[in-house]
Design a protein around this nucleic acid. Structure first.
Lengths: 355, 355
DNA sequence: CTGAAAGCGCTAACAA
DNA sequence: TTGTTAGCGCTTTCAG
């Protein structure tokens, strides 16, 4: 009789079942070529001893290497720097665990993303994280990637009709709904408000606008959205149009800016000395906004948590690829609401963010 | 000449340096008994090939097993069920990676926690996650744990003067500050508001109260906190005192409830038909609150995200124990603000939570 | 001061 | 249908 060294895992099961580890392996994985009886016996023993595969041993043995492409723009830095940071920080947690990242250059949302994505397709990747700026154009590419076995996770922006495996985002309409509800709560009945947006033909902007209008109307009896200004992310245009609005609508008591470019609006409010008469709700956060927050020019901001979105995209994809965790088709997040009281807890306010 | 099989890691470095893997291991770990020259040579080569240790191989070789004790109450279920869920879900991600969890029974915050914690001390654990209900009494126990090498992470509630390695929580005062700021934004000048709390001798409750008073006073000119009601988490007491208040203060326009037990207040408001004249800000979320949210009785709730706190506590502790990641001494989170618009995205509203 | 070798639990290729 | 065996990259022990 051999000295019974204490063992565990597959060898233990093999000894208990009186078979070899090869047979146990086959049973545990439902591989073909095994007797019904032994299969059942092994499975039973495995259950009894509460067998759990050792992830480290498996990873070491299979030598599985996972390569993940990152296809995300550099601009607007206010937003995408945070997203990159989240992706990088989360990625670093997996360094040394068989995960590599392959970034490709996309200068700006929607520009150059198709060629960049195509480049990623040629490298055999197990997964890609992408921000489709032009969902229609990207859909066939995403579908092609999925067909060749590359899992695609959209982040921040979605390609809803594509075959992407998952999306991590905040629904644009929800941002608008929250802003509208807050605004209605801030103001009294029959209030007049306005919206400053980028371009309404951008889906993101139009949905935020629509959401705001819907919830503001519902919750502010007699309230009115007197203007929707398209500023095209252009500082001067934004400043001028806002200033004009403030002059022509002296009764105005609220403005919702649903792109990240709110500084011109802040300046217009300050110049017209109406900073405290008008409640301003903005979107996201970067350093130069902070003084306006502290002065009370900005009452609240709807923060889309790009850092968290990046983290979650990486994490869910890696866990899926490495450990077979389920990839949910949608991962919708809640935006957080920034007020003066909690401003200090956002990384952008701590010298970590850009801007 | 031997056929040069493609290798990597320590064996590769060994071959390049013309030494054995044992020597490379010593060099890489700064272990004693190695020649200055070879040490430098090996380190240089390691740097050149960009050596990164393989976490799976290391884990397999060392067979490191990590056991983490969980010392968290069952009641109040509204809150702690979520915390448990977060801990369990996050823990499950690490199953099969050499992490075991050892829960001990604590019926209720602060009751029986000392004996439960002592029990954990006898089992040799690498870490403990604990909710110190009575920080003064727990401090010496926590210190003892840390002294014997058990990393202690406090969650939700803190023992600030102890030697705990980390805390994951939302500062109570911040909850109050946010509630106060929101309330000030919701109401006009000279508004009268009240606070319903549990017991002011509970640090958590008094800090939330103090925070609310501070920010409300600062942001609502002429505003006044006309009453601070201690309801001792007692439904009848809470209902009665609120009803009395509503009668004696017809001008009242806001109430902040800073414990999870807000239902009696909701009922009092409904009974007195003043539900829509008084803005109600509550704390956390459970199922029975939802109708009051939808009816507009509750204007907003400050959610302390117990699920996320649990996740983060487990995650940071495991990453520290397994991969040597740094454990920050404090991990302060932001509460999220629940409105009607985003209510549906909270797990409590999706049949996941309790209550 | 350095080398050799065993083995962690699992997979996969080959033998029987 | 089943058993045997050689590693995966690292740590650790024992010889030299």
């Amino acid at each position: 009789m051999r000295a019974a060294r204490k063992q565990s895992g597959i060898p233990l099961i093999a000894e208990l079942a009186g078979v070899s580890i090869g047979t146990v392996d086959r049973a545990l994985h439902g591989r073909p070529g095994i007797n019904e009886q032994t299969l059942k016996r092994i499975l039973k023993i495995a259950r009894q001893i509460g067998y759990k595969p050792n992830a480290a041993a498996r990873a070491l043995s299979t030598g599985r290497h996972v390569r993940i492409g990152i296809c995300i723009p550099k601009e607007i830095a206010y937003f995408y720097d945070e997203l990159w940071d989240g992706i990088r920080d989360e990625g670093n947690r997996y360094s040394g665990r068989g995960v590599d990242f392959v970034p490709v250059a996309v200068p700006e949302l929607g520009r150059g993303e198709q060629s960049a994505f195509k480049k990623l397709l040629t490298a055999k990747l197990s997964g890609v994280i992408v921000t489709p700026g032009n969902p229609e154009a990207m859909t066939p590419l995403i579908d092609a990637a999925e067909r060749q076995g590359t899992r695609v996770v959209c982040v921040s922006t979605d390609a809803p009709v594509s075959q992407r495996s998952s999306v991590v985002c905040i629904e644009p309409r929800l941002n608008g709904l929250i802003a509208g509800e807050l605004m209605a709560n801030f103001l009294s009945v029959r209030a007049k408000v306005a919206i400053v947006t980028g371009m309404l033909k951008t889906v993101d902007h139009s949905q935020k606008t629509e959401g705001f209008v819907a919830s503001f109307r519902e919750r502010c009896p007699g309230g009115e959205v007197v203007a929707v200004i398209e500023a095209h992310e252009h500082p001067e245009e934004s400043f001028r149009k806002t200033a004009n609005l403030l002059e022509s609508e002296p009764e105005l008591s609220g403005i919702y800016v649903n792109t990240v470019n709110c500084l011109p609006v802040c300046r217009a409010l300050a110049t017209m000395k109406s900073a405290h008469k008008v409640r301003l709700i903005t979107t996201d956060l970067f350093r130069k906004m902070i003084p306006y927050f502290e002065r009370g020019t900005i009452a609240a901001s709807i923060h889309q948590q790009p850092y968290v979105q990046g983290q979650l995209a990486v994490r869910s994809l890696v866990e899926h690829l490495l450990h077979g965790a389920e990839l949910l088709r949608t991962q919708y997040l809640n935006p957080s609401i920034i007020l003066r009281s909690n401003l200090h807890l956002f990384r952008e306010a701590n010298g970590l963010g850009s801007g």
